[in-house]
Design a binder for these strands. Structure first.
Lengths: 209, 209
DNA sequence: GTCTATAGTCTGATAGAC
DNA sequence: GTCTATCAGACTATAGAC
């Protein structure tokens, strides 16, 4: 019997079945993410997901208890990635610049096709998400971080005085999900870089001279 | 036989039945408008509308061939009212001011609860609307008028130079439907006037100092 | 395969316009 | 009094979660 290499853990290796199971779960999440971005929540049928992954519909329910739970898992993964992107920004940069950078990051993610049409597409999904502890925790953590940036930007004197902090935060979220991006992309008259630049500028500096 | 007064038309007066029919049609449109604004397209069942109006479901189909046709009629009425509001603005005002005024008008309409969650809520509805000649004509007429205002604002030198006209128009539509309004309204921290003022200002002048 | 939801249809009964 | 529009609601068909 050959000795295990140092790379292999002492505890019994995950069984092949187990590894397959986890790979399939990632594949399901990826497919769902793609379909959510493409069609939105309600139009996306569980059959679509099964077909995309290439597994039986019933198998989906071995991984996720319901369509809502599956969508929630996708959204939680997205919030985590967003939070990581925010953490990766240089801490010494002015708060306003970091907010700009986050908006730009999000818009580029969307242009690359990776971001599901926001919960706003479906009241059912929104309610399910707000009932999901893990999702709400992630969302609150992200909102805390963004809220800190807003307050910091204000004390830096970077914001116009009469906007409520609450307003600035909602404004940021709404610009991150702005449908203008999809229309411009579909219109095809502007490059991705132009779309991102104009949207970021409009969000922070307005469109008037 | 008494002579008809001058106020009465020669042709036979509309029968009572006919008048009832038309009143009911308005009631159906009003109820649908309200329900669309409250729940969105798919969650709104025809039974809901019938119940809201207080008529039998079958009677709905005496007025509108389908759920899609009914929703389209509501949206067309909304576009007409919007165009009338635009026509009512003083023609001598600068184009940029008229755009601001239109955005303010729309946001106030939404705060008053009268505007259906945009077509974006449902791909089905969006497709049905785009296949509806009357709707598309109204939408194009409105877009023409707004596009004219944008071009005029640009030649007035009111817009920042590097925004595409196309971008400015989409930006305007997106701000008119901005979910920020609903969040702020639900939050309750700001008055309606504050919400409108901050949103209009953010849309045109940005949030940075 | 089962079950639920809902668009859309149909029918017999009935109120009320004519 | 006659007749027609409307009513209540059963029913069909379909889609989609599970």
């Amino acid at each position: 019997m050959p000795t295990r290499s140092a790379r292999e853990p002492e505890r019994p290796a995950k069984s092949f079945r187990q590894a397959q199971f986890e790979r399939r779960e990632q594949a399901i999440l990826d497919a769902t993410n793609r379909l959510l971005a493409e069609k939105g929540y309600e139009p996306m049928a569980m059959d679509d997901i099964a077909a995309e992954v290439g597994i039986a519909k019933g198998s989906l329910y071995k991984h996720f208890a319901s369509k809502e739970a599956l969508a929630a898992a996708v959204m939680i993964r997205l919030l985590r990635r967003t939070r990581e992107a925010l953490d990766a920004l240089p801490a010494e940069a002015p708060a306003a610049d970091r907010l700009r950078a986050m908006l730009e990051w999000t818009l580029r993610e969307r242009l690359d096709g990776g971001v599901p049409h926001l919960p706003s597409t479906s009241a059912t999904l929104r309610d399910a998400l707000l009932a999901n502890r893990e999702y709400v925790d992630e969302l609150m953590a992200l909102s805390e971080m963004l809220g800190d940036l807003v307050r910091q930007a204000r004390s830096d004197g970077a914001l116009s005085g009469d906007f409520a902090d609450e307003f600035v935060l909602y404004h940021f979220y709404a610009r991150a999900c702005d449908p203008t991006l999809d229309f411009l992309k579909a219109g095809g008259a502007l490059t991705d870089d132009q779309i991102v630049a104009q949207m970021v500028r409009a969000a922070f500096d307005g469109i008037t001279r």
